[in-house]
């Protein structure tokens, strides 16, 4: 495993930790899109179908369990915790995420490497992950005061796939059997590009020492 991939995974982990910290310590999920969280849970379920059958490394297995467990605990907090669920801003979270699921499933059925259940579900998870942040980005734009933890959560999440792209370039250059990954690369590129606007305002607010606010 190269440093880019590892740093990417750590960013991903950090984003989840930051979000859980906000929810657990502040007992608040204000500004967080439940729809994005539902999409991520679905992404992890579909991608990690092989969790008990396809062993790659202890690291991989543990990370898979951590991502699945954290995704479900976030959903539990936002939907069932008596204090946290009151802070969920349902009216601002209006993205029609079922359309994303449907579109990604159709695309996965049409464009994939291999037509097997496992492979199509994996491809679906790759497509869905690329766009899963959209409900969250829409919600951020509507929120006037984005708190630091929420801003950092989205920032770490965006950095994660950015680092994965460097990992792909590195692996492409150093590994002989590392090709035919274009499907992942295109999706990963789109996923990272979606954050471009957010990154711009995040860095700007950080440099000017101002509170993060996205233009409407």
């Amino acid at each position: 495993m190269n440093i880019f991939r590892f740093a990417g995974d750590m960013m991903h982990l950090l984003s989840v930790v930051v979000l859980l910290l906000k929810i657990h310590k502040m007992k608040s999920c204000a500004g967080i899109s439940l729809k994005t969280q539902e999409l991520y849970a679905l992404v992890f379920i579909c991608r990690y179908l092989d969790i008990f059958t396809g062993f790659i490394s202890l690291y991989n297995t543990i990370m898979k369990i951590v991502f699945l467990a954290s995704a479900f605990s976030i959903l539990w907090y936002m939907r069932s915790h008596k204090v946290v669920r009151q802070t969920y801003d349902k009216d601002q979270d209006t993205f029609r995420h079922y359309f994303l699921i449907l579109a990604c499933m159709v695309l996965a059925l049409l464009v994939h490497h291999k037509f097997t259940f496992r492979e199509v579900m994996w491809t679906f998870s790759i497509y869905l992950e690329a766009v899963a942040i959209l409900p969250q980005l829409v919600m951020l734009q509507r929120t006037r005061n984005i708190d630091n933890l929420t801003g950092n959560y989205v920032f770490f999440l965006g950095t994660y796939r950015g680092l994965y792209m460097l990992n792909w370039v590195y692996r492409y250059l150093t590994e002989v059997h590392y090709h035919h990954r274009w499907l992942t690369w295109i999706s990963g590129f789109i996923q990272t590009a979606l954050y471009a606007d957010f990154f711009y305002y995040y860095v700007k607010s950080w440099r000017n020492n101002e509170k993060l606010q996205l233009p409407a």
Binding site: D9, I56, K114, E119
Partner: peptide, 10 residues
């Protein structure tokens, strides 16, 4: 293996 595709990333 077909395409050498092994999902070793997270």
């Amino acid at each position: 293996r077909n395409l050498g595709e092994k999902h070793d990333e997270l």
